[in-house]
Simulated scan of single mutants.
Amino acid sequence: MTGRSAPAVLPPSLRVWLGPIAALAALVVVVLGVRFAGDSKPGMVDARIWAAVDGMGSPWRHVALATDFLGEPVGAATLVVATVTGCLLLRRPRAAVLVVVGAGMTVGTATLLKSLVGRTIHGADNLSYPSGHTAFLTALALVVALLATGRLGLGRTAGTSLVLAAALVAGAAMGWAQVALGAHYPTDVLGGWCTALAVIPATAWLVDRMADRVDRMADAGRWERR
């Protein structure tokens, strides 16, 4: 499926920067998780941001609900299918694999962390840290940005800027929606954003490693048949 000529989903030019960024993001996730473990109230920063977005009018609430839908099962599945289809049309099978595996790993990690951290909102049954919606949309934006970087042949600085900008826009949009709707604390949103930043580069590296191994095995098989 990957093919010998399939480009790397994690461009070599970005590995130097995305590795440390992923490590820093993972550290932020852990620090916030420890800080808010078992908590059920907003922190000082949470309360201030909540106060700033309180009283959102009807038009903006509709925007927030529409954005929130993108992280719901139906909306998320639609986005994944559309993105996978686009990757395959562009003949980027590794990117298609990363969309599915990366999104799954990101959401799975966020779900596991919710159980481990145990932070709640609006009742003991509503685990909140980190925000799975924010993690998902950020992860998808990261994959698309990595694909664009490879397609456009961007260098280290331009490529890293594009990837981080895409992650920031997606994370900010979904994060705002979650906070505005009262579904998450702002620090939950930050945790979800950092979860995607930590998981996607690592998953992309693993996808490339596995694909390269399959390619080498296929090459060896062709040589043996000659």
Rank of each mutant, 00 (worst) to 15 (best):
M217E: 15
L137Y: 05
T78E: 04
M44I: 08
I21Q: 10
V81N: 08
P42V: 01
V117P: 09
T149C: 11
H184C: 03
W223T: 12
L14W: 07
M210L: 15
P42S: 01
A51Q: 13
T78C: 11
T134F: 08
A82E: 06
L89W: 15
G155S: 06
G57T: 08
L154Y: 08
G108A: 02
S115F: 15
A22T: 01
A167N: 04
G153S: 06
R222Y: 09
G57D: 14
A139C: 04
G153M: 05
Q178W: 06
A218N: 11
P73A: 03
V29I: 03
P11A: 04
G191P: 08
R61P: 00
C194A: 14
L206T: 09
A148R: 13
L147R: 14
K114P: 03
V163E: 09
G191W: 13
H62P: 00
R222K: 12
L14P: 08
A110P: 05
V143N: 03
A170D: 06
G118D: 02
G153N: 06
T78R: 02
D188K: 02
A37H: 14
D212G: 05
A25D: 01
A148I: 09
G57L: 08
G33A: 01
L181G: 04
A124F: 12
E224H: 12
W17T: 11
T111A: 12
G153K: 02
T109Q: 06
R226C: 08
H184A: 00
G153Q: 07
V16K: 14
A167G: 15
G55Y: 11
T120M: 01
A135V: 04
R151V: 13
R119W: 11
A37Y: 06
S131P: 04
V81Q: 08
V100Q: 06
L197W: 07
L24H: 06
A95L: 01
T78I: 13
S131T: 00
A37S: 14
S128H: 01
L27D: 07
L70F: 10
I49V: 15
H62S: 14
D215F: 00
L98I: 05
A110T: 11
M210K: 05
L142E: 10
P130Y: 10
L206R: 07
A135E: 06
K41T: 15
M210Y: 13
D54M: 08
R225Y: 10
R91K: 13
L79T: 00
L79Q: 05
V214E: 14
V214T: 12
I21A: 13
S131Q: 06
R226Q: 11
V30A: 13
A166H: 06
V97T: 12
A202C: 08
V101N: 02
G104S: 01
H122P: 00
I121G: 00
M44L: 14
R35N: 07
R156W: 12
A148Q: 11
D212S: 09
G175I: 03
W205R: 13
L116V: 14
G171E: 05
G3P: 06
A76S: 10
P93A: 00
A166I: 03
F36R: 01
A166G: 05
G221D: 14
W205H: 12
A196N: 03
A165P: 06
L98F: 09
P11F: 09
V63M: 12
L90K: 13
G43N: 05
V84M: 10
A220M: 10
G123E: 07
T160S: 11
